[in-house]
């Protein structure tokens, strides 16, 4: 399986994401500079965390206007799995690939620590190796992680089972404790916590690895004959 990691100016979790796919999962991965990236031919696309364009205007807003987002939309329409973590999630929101928006954390602090997440939906290509209701320990590291959407959008998210992860103890004020959501089609996941920082025991948790393993398993089932 071949992963693309998109690198924006200001991305800082690109290497962690690459490490998770390449070393922890043991699959192929390329780090692609956003201006030169050709996303054709990749089995999954990872949008890493960081502070693209210094979070100018709004987190993810400037990156969402770059040409690479046009390619992202094409790949999303084709059903290619796309995972956006932290700033990657913010870019997916700003580009409209996922509904909602991010506000500043309710305590106005940048927070960087482990949080317990509840797997609300394990019926997705990103979470099939988790149990429904499983509590996993995955670190957060953000200033603008306070997810917001209006009531109608929230109702739709619930109805379509698009809320994938929630916080056990909501740290940032997110609506409905939301930590991660998926698109209606089920192939675009955005989440504020960093699964790529929790892929081996020496990092204090390997609970994030199952997310990448789920992606791999799903890809094998779909595309590898006899798997």
């Amino acid at each position: 399986m071949k992963f693309a990691v998109i690198v924006f100016p200001g991305s800082n979790c690109d290497r962690d994401m690459y490490y998770a796919a390449k070393d922890a999962l043991g699959e192929d991965a390329d780090m692609l500079w956003y201006q030169e990236a050709n996303l054709e031919g990749y089995d999954a696309i990872l949008i890493p965390g960081g502070f693209s364009y210094g979070d100018y205007l709004r987190s993810g807003a400037i990156a969402s206007t770059s040409d690479i987002v046009v390619q992202l939309r094409e790949q999303a329409d084709k059903g290619v799995p796309i995972l956006g973590v932290c700033n990657g999630f913010q870019i997916l929101l700003e580009s409209g690939l996922l509904p909602g928006a991010m506000l500043r954390n309710k305590n106005l602090k940048f927070m960087c620590h482990f949080e317990n997440l509840i797997v609300e939906n394990n019926d997705s290509l990103f979470t099939s190796k988790y149990q429904k209701g499983e509590v996993v320990s995955i670190p957060i590291a953000h200033h603008d992680g306070n997810y917001y959407c209006d009531d109608a959008t929230l109702a739709r998210l619930k109805e379509n089972n698009q809320i994938v992860f929630t916080y056990e103890n909501n740290p940032n004020g997110s609506v409905a404790d939301i930590a991660g959501i998926i698109n209606e089609q089920g192939n675009v996941l955005g989440m504020m916590p960093h699964p790529e920082r929790a892929v081996e025991a020496i990092l204090n948790s390997d609970d994030g690895l199952k997310l990448f393993q789920s992606m791999l398993e799903n890809w094998r089932e779909r595309y590898v004959a006899g798997a």
Binding site: L57, R58, A61, T65, E94, G100, A101
Partner: peptide, 9 residues
């Protein structure tokens, strides 16, 4: 609508 403001919020 496209960039300066985020119509969601």
């Amino acid at each position: 609508n496209k960039l300066l403001a985020n119509p969601v919020i």
